[in-house]
C-alpha cells in the first residue's frame, strides 16, 4: 500500500512537469510581446524594457523555463508584478478562506446529498424519489451567482439570519467563521449536491438489485442495515469518484462564489491577477490548483482500496 502511494506520487511528477510547462508558456501563448502585455497600454518603451529586464524575458525561452522551475523547486513562486509581494505569501494569505469554503461545501454536500440519494433509490419511483430528483434538476440548472444572490437576499437581507458578505477567520471563533460560510457553501454546493445525489441514487439502484441484497433480506435484516451497511458501501466507488471530480467543480465555482459573497479567497485573487495581467500570480495559482487536483485523485484511488477489498494495487 505504502509503496503504491509512493509509486503514484512519483507517477504524478511527469504530470506536474507538463502542467508547469503549460503554466509557464501561458505568457508566451498569449499574442504579442509578453513585456508589452504585462506593461499595459499606457506604458512607455522604457517601462517595457525595464519589465523585460527584471523578468529576464530577454533570455532564451528554455533558460527562462529552467530558472523558473529551479526557483519553484526551492519554494519560490516569484514576485507579483503588481504588488511586489512574493506570490507564495499572497497565496498563503488567501488560502484559508478558500479552503474553509471548500471544506464546508464538501461536508455539506456529503451530509445532504448521500442520504438524499439513498432515500431516492430506496423509494425509487415514488413521490419522494421524484421530488428529490426534481430538486436535483433544479440544482443543476441554477447558476451559482443566481443562487448566491437569492440566498443573500432572503436569509441575510430580509430575514437577517446570517451575514450578507465577508469572511471571519477560524481563529476568531467557530460560529463567526461558520456563520459567514453557510450561504456561500449552499450556493456553491447546489450543483454539487444535485450531482452527488443523482450518482448516489444510480449507484444504489444498481446495488439494490444485486443478489446479496436479497440475501440480506432473507437473513431478516432491517431496512437501515440493508441500505447503509450492505448497500451503500458497495455503491461507494462511483460516489467517491464523483465527489473527487466535484472538487474541480468547486475550484471553478469558488471563483464566482467568492466574488458574490466578498470572501477574500484565492478565487478573487485569481480574478484580480487576471485583470491585472499579473502573470507570476496566475502561474502560481494554476500550479497550486493542479497540484491539489492531482493529490485529490490520488486520495480517491486510495479510498477505493479502503472501501473494496477486491481492489489491490
Amino acid at each position: 500500500m505504502l509503496s503504491y502511494i509512493l509509486r503514484r506520487i512519483v507517477a504524478t511528477l511527469p504530470v506536474m512537469a507538463i502542467v508547469a510547462l503549460f503554466v509557464f508558456s501561458l505568457l508566451y501563448i498569449a499574442p504579442g510581446d509578453p513585456a508589452v502585455v504585462i506593461a499595459g497600454d499606457q506604458a512607455s518603451p522604457e517601462d517595457v524594457e525595464r519589465i523585460r529586464q527584471s523578468l529576464g524575458l530577454d533570455r532564451p525561452f528554455l533558460v527562462q523555463f529552467g530558472s523558473w522551475v529551479w526557483r519553484i523547486l526551492h519554494g519560490d513562486l516569484g514576485t507579483s508584478i503588481f504588488t511586489n509581494l512574493p506570490v507564495s505569501a499572497m497565496i498563503g494569505q488567501r488560502l484559508g478562506p478558500t479552503l474553509s469554503l471548500m471544506i464546508v461545501t464538501l461536508l455539506l454536500t456529503i451530509v445532504v446529498a448521500v442520504p438524499l440519494g439513498v432515500v431516492a433509490a430506496w423509494k425509487a419511483g415514488s413521490l419522494i424519489d421524484r421530488v428529490i430528483m426534481g430538486f436535483a434538476v433544479f440544482g443543476f440548472s441554477l447558476p451559482v451567482f443566481v443562487v448566491g444572490y437569492m440566498l443573500a437576499y432572503i436569509f441575510a437581507l430580509e430575514l437577517e439570519w446570517l451575514p450578507v458578505q465577508g469572511y471571519t477567520p477560524l481563529t476568531q471563533g467557530f460560529w463567526p467563521w461558520l456563520e459567514n460560510l453557510i450561504l456561500p457553501a449552499i450556493a456553491l454546493g447546489c450543483v454539487y449536491i444535485a450531482l452527488v445525489a443523482r450518482i448516489t441514487r444510480a449507484a444504489m439502484l444498481e446495488v439494490l438489485q444485486q443478489d446479496y441484497i436479497r440475501t440480506a433480506k432473507a437473513k431478516g435484516l432491517g431496512q437501515g442495515g440493508i441500505l447503509f451497511i450492505h448497500a451503500l458501501k458497495n455503491a461507494a466507488v462511483p460516489i467517491v469518484t464523483v465527489i473527487g471530480i466535484g472538487i474541480a467543480l468547486l475550484i471553478g465555482g469558488a471563483v464566482v462564489t467568492e466574488s458574490v459573497f466578498a470572501i477574500p479567497g484565492l478565487g478573487r485573487l485569481t480574478i484580480d491577477a487576471i485583470l491585472r495581467r499579473d502573470y507570476p500570480v496566475i502561474q502560481g495559482i494554476v500550479l497550486l490548483f493542479s497540484f491539489v487536483y492531482v493529490l485529490v485523485n490520488l486520495m480517491i484511488d486510495v479510498t477505493y482500496t479502503l472501501v473494496d477489498p477486491r481492489i489491490r494495487y
Partner: peptide, 24 residues
C-alpha cells in the same frame, strides 16, 4: 415478518458468490 425471515425460514440461492456481499 422479520422473525420469519432468517429465523423460522431461510433460503439459499443460485450463484452463491453473487449472493454474498463482496466487500464484507
Amino acid at each position: 415478518l422479520r422473525h420469519l425471515q432468517g429465523a423460522a425460514m431461510s433460503m439459499i440461492f443460485q450463484n452463491p458468490r453473487a449472493a454474498l456481499n463482496p466487500i464484507r
